[in-house]
Amino acid sequence: MASLRDEAAFDTGITAEILDDTVELPPGVGPYRLAWRRLRRNRVALAFGLIFLLIVVLCLLAPIYSQDIAHISPDYGNPTGTVKVGGKTEDILNAVGIPVGPTWNFTHYFLGADEEGRDVAVRLLYGGRNSLEIGLVATLITMALAIIAGTLAGYLRGITDGIISRVLDIIWAYPAVLLGIVLGTVIEIRGLGPFHSTTLLSTALVVGFVYVPYVAKPIRAQVLALREREFIDAARQLGLSPLRIMTFEILPNLASTIIVFIPLVLANAILNEAALTFLGAGVQPPNASWGTMISDGISTIPEAFHNVLVPGIMLVLTVLSINVFGDGLRDALDPRARIRIGKE
């Protein structure tokens, strides 16, 4: 008898002890705890997450580096000054206006000067702060609008869905960069209520708006599937209002989708900010961002390529670290991804 039970247990992969109902079952582990366990095992994703945190901390320390170590403000150009490079004294800008390259002296023009004689390292940190800030605010705007639009369209269906989906389609049909420069230019000229071209918030608003359909469409599709499930039916039978069902029944079930989208949108928002700024419709001078630095630097090709290389590498490193971490996060939240790789 016992051997038969053991065999049955072997087939189902359950050990004999658990089938014995006198033994108490261990408490269950929630999906988020499981996801966290999987994420913790993914060393590469964690390492890149750490790199991202490091970049954020460095950029937040910009004022300290600027005031106490480099002793130069990000907007201060010193075109007639000199620096020491490896014991030799060199002009910050030489006779034909070409800026000096990296001095590798941590306290003075560490990464060289730009075409106006400003300290690239100091501007890099300040610019990074602006780029990250815009990226973050834009992501919040995208996610908030997309969650509201996607949930309303998916749950209410009918005419609401029709209107929201058509609006999303219109935004979608524009190339992201083209829509960005159209909106950016409009705000630059006219302002939009309290937003003026000189505030970073207007750029964040434009970048955030452009990505709404990319997130709202998948959320709508998921809500369409969710609303047919039994627990939503039960909530409706209990007489809960649609608003309550959407916020307390549907929204929690969207959590993992939302978490997966956040790094994706953040990475794209930072890239798009740089692109808009490169085209002159994003961050306006004197504010620095990685986009303005690259765009200024391209005009000094081929004489002073460090002006493009330094902010460019920071930009790629930041976006790459967000992407790799986000990928790990998705694998952790979507267990099927693990099985998929295992089965091959």
Partner: peptide
């Protein structure tokens, strides 16, 4: 492909123009 996704078009363009074009 991760690096490709994280690479801004204008930065990649600038790198190519500088290293493959000028240099």
């Amino acid at each position: 492909s991760m690096i490709g996704v994280s690479m801004p078009v204008f930065f990649l363009g600038a790198i190519l123009i500088y290293y493959a074009g000028y240099k």
